[in-house]
Simulated assay, not measured.
Amino acid sequence: MTKSSGADPRKTDVKVSLIGGHRLAGATLHERTVTASLIGGADIDLTDVGIPDGAELRITKLSLIGGVSLRVPRNVRVDVRGLRLGGVKDDGPSEPGGPTVRIDAWGLVGGVSIRRA
């Protein structure tokens, strides 16, 4: 996760496409990221990122069709919000405390799948 510089601490990365999703790796993300597409989801891998305790990484996904596939380390708490037709699948509990990844998933069709490494 890249830290925002002192010049603009609220930097938000925006990724847009009409058709096709986005593949995001932790080293290229800032504290806030927005992905938007007409058709296509987001494949996000945060396993190689050291998110500090108490920090919150926010990812917003907007699409008509497409879900979110998220990979996080075991110590990361995941908070899923938004409105979509599709559920949330989390393969295990996170440890108490630690950093937080907040996913705001807005779409017509598509769920959120969380895998822990």
Results as ranks from 00 to 15, higher is better:
residue 82 G to A: 01
residue 81 R to A: 14
residue 1 M to A: 06
residue 87 G to S: 07
residue 111 G to Q: 08
residue 108 L to G: 10
residue 117 A to R: 15
residue 24 L to T: 04
residue 100 T to Y: 04
residue 29 L to F: 02
residue 38 L to A: 09
residue 102 R to A: 01
residue 18 L to D: 12
residue 4 S to I: 00
residue 113 S to A: 09
residue 19 I to E: 09
residue 74 R to K: 13
residue 7 A to S: 14
residue 27 A to E: 13
residue 117 A to M: 12
residue 2 T to D: 06
residue 49 V to T: 15
residue 76 V to T: 07
residue 36 A to C: 11
residue 108 L to K: 04
residue 100 T to H: 06
residue 47 T to I: 08
residue 101 V to T: 00
residue 78 V to L: 07
residue 90 D to H: 06
residue 75 N to F: 08
residue 6 G to D: 15
residue 64 L to N: 07
residue 55 A to Y: 11
residue 102 R to W: 05
residue 15 K to R: 13
residue 116 R to I: 12
residue 15 K to C: 12
residue 6 G to K: 10
residue 105 A to L: 09
residue 2 T to F: 10
residue 115 R to V: 09
residue 14 V to S: 07
residue 58 R to T: 14
residue 49 V to P: 02
residue 105 A to V: 11
residue 76 V to W: 03
residue 97 G to T: 10
residue 53 D to N: 07
residue 1 M to G: 04
residue 81 R to H: 13
residue 27 A to D: 13
residue 53 D to K: 12
residue 70 L to N: 02
residue 112 V to C: 02
residue 92 G to R: 13
residue 116 R to S: 05
residue 41 G to A: 11
residue 7 A to F: 14
residue 80 V to K: 03
residue 103 I to G: 03
residue 90 D to C: 10
residue 110 G to M: 11
residue 12 T to C: 08
residue 5 S to I: 00
residue 63 S to W: 03
residue 2 T to S: 11
residue 55 A to I: 15
residue 102 R to T: 10
residue 51 I to K: 01
residue 76 V to D: 00
residue 10 R to C: 05
residue 94 S to M: 02
residue 41 G to N: 13
residue 45 D to H: 03
residue 91 D to L: 09
residue 15 K to P: 03
residue 107 G to W: 00
residue 31 E to M: 11
residue 46 L to S: 05
residue 114 I to L: 07
residue 109 V to R: 01
residue 21 G to F: 01
residue 47 T to D: 06
residue 103 I to W: 00
residue 110 G to D: 09
residue 69 S to Y: 10
residue 60 T to P: 05
residue 99 P to G: 02
residue 22 H to T: 02
residue 32 R to L: 05
residue 32 R to G: 04
residue 3 K to L: 15
residue 115 R to S: 12
residue 81 R to M: 14
residue 35 T to G: 00
residue 18 L to W: 15
residue 15 K to D: 12
residue 89 K to P: 01
residue 41 G to L: 14
residue 33 T to K: 04
residue 28 T to N: 14
residue 41 G to Y: 09
residue 12 T to S: 12
residue 24 L to M: 13
residue 15 K to W: 12
residue 1 M to R: 12
residue 22 H to F: 01
residue 106 W to T: 11
residue 53 D to Q: 10
residue 37 S to L: 12
residue 37 S to R: 06
residue 28 T to L: 11
residue 88 V to C: 03
residue 43 D to Y: 05
residue 104 D to L: 07
residue 72 V to F: 01
residue 71 R to V: 07
residue 65 I to K: 06
residue 5 S to P: 06
residue 115 R to P: 01
residue 100 T to I: 06
residue 115 R to T: 09
residue 43 D to A: 11
residue 105 A to I: 08
residue 76 V to K: 05
residue 77 R to G: 08
